[in-house]
Design a protein around this nucleic acid. Structure first.
Lengths: 248, 248
DNA sequence: GCATCAACTTGACCACTGTCAAATAATTTG
DNA sequence: CAAATTATTTGACAGTGGTCAAGTTGATGC
């Protein structure tokens, strides 16, 4: 049922009557979300799509804005930040190439709960909201894929809520580090993909506290050197932060 | 594979070839989720459904179990609790009559991230997972409704994450109280629908801290007397906890 | 009414995280 | 390469929320 009939047209030219360059369309077809969609459906859905480039620290949209388009990260990194007038700000999520974001806001047509900032120079694809909602309504396959994707994402948030309520800063940092190890076992060295202040916001603490949390993790066999982090015993670290303990 | 052979107690009438009593089917039809579904579709979907009664504090399922059915609260209250071996436990969500739960787990077929406990004597409807997933796959209308419902729910969780990261215990309690006032303005008296220990777990603090948080809110015009809470100035309380500040 | 038990409150104290300030890398710019 | 920025670490201290141990209050049963 899935056949990717990739028609390679002239390099980096636009397809007839299509808002996307051929290479971007191809990139879309490789995304976990859309790769299960027939090529012609994908082409249809992206007719009104457009691609924008954002510089590092450039704001893509603001909390409170009404969404105009579903976004997909083609390249770079995007942070979703929540703000409270008090002065507080936190990174709710970090997105990398291939990830879709703000689906819930686009579908409900409610104001954004978060702002989006390019953490690196990034290329973002936009699927206009009106059109996308129509596509979802009319294309059962798309609606089903979105549901599956959102269910997965939903569970990530439930984990997040549990972790915030039940775990310490050091444990949450350990969880974050384990997320970078890609299910390896034994020992490993990972490279932090962000600055430590960004990681601090993601973990939900101040940079100073992150430094100290790294200090605590030294006892768990975690050694930091700049952006390189050596983890001596992954299973031990996993036990320390009770990862994957859904199986009680 | 899973055969729900309900013992047939023939007091209230069952529809022919249907697992549900007529009154329960009618109740389903009134739910926000399913009321947009044609009656015949609803009847179809609920053919294999069954209803169970749980006593107060009875566990409906455990964190880590593999989901067998989508659940809907017909009557009573259900709490979803997350646990960590450490000893920590928290209430992630409280559900009342008319709310569906664990849709994400059923759709992804992954182990529960939370346990469900009846906070009161409750009647719970179960839609067997295999059948439900098939229905979602085959019925575009159902898939679309689920997507809309999940998007809404998703945004609640995003709010929750933001609140946990950015707000104090007293502010989160204020948010909880405002959630009970049903968008009224001016002043009002609400009745706490749960014991204070349950509310404490929901807000994400210890009962002792909840007591003190109520103390802090006294300065914001909140007076507690047993299960009755008087709020003198709703807009002031809303400002105090920065509710609805998506519009910055 | 009184005993009993559970729910709730209060106080004393402690641990964790935030804040502010200063010192020390690391990175960028001229 | 040195100056200038920006990130990160460290220390001292404060505030928030957790823990433990009494009380209180309130509900339930006899």
């Amino acid at each position: 049922m899935v056949q990717i009939t990739q028609k390679r047209v002239q390099s980096s030219s636009r397809l007839a009557g299509h808002g996307l360059k051929a290479e971007d369309l191809a990139a879309m077809g490789r995304l976990p979300l859309f790769c299960d969609l027939p090529a012609e459906a994908l082409a249809e859905i992206t007719v009104e799509a457009s691609v924008h480039k954002y510089q590092r620290n450039e704001v893509i949209f603001h909390q409170g804005d009404v969404p105009t388009a579903l976004r997909v990260v083609l390249d770079g990194q995007v942070g979703l930040t929540g703000t409270v007038t008090d002065g507080g700000e936190t990174l709710v999520e970090i997105l990398s190439a291939g990830e879709m974001f703000i689906a819930a806001a686009v579908l409900t047509e409610k104001p954004f709960l978060m702002s989006a900032v390019a953490l690196q120079t990034s290329r973002i694809l936009s699927l206009p909201g009106e059109r996308f909602r129509r596509d979802v309504r009319e294309r059962p396959d798309l609606s089903f894929l979105m549901l599956a994707s959102m269910a997965k994402h939903f569970r990530m948030l439930v984990r997040e809520v549990k972790d915030l309520k039940l775990k310490s800063a050091a444990q949450r940092l350990a969880l974050y580090l384990l997320g970078l190890t890609a299910k390896r076992e034994g020992s490993t060295i990972v490279r932090l993909p962000h600055s430590k202040s960004i990681i601090a916001a993601r973990v939900g603490v101040r940079p100073e506290t992150l430094s100290r949390a790294f200090g605590h993790l030294r006892k768990q066999g975690v050694a930091v050197d700049g952006h390189a982090v050596a983890i001596a015993d992954i299973p031990a670290l996993r036990a320390y932060c009770h990862e994957g303990e859904e199986i009680i």
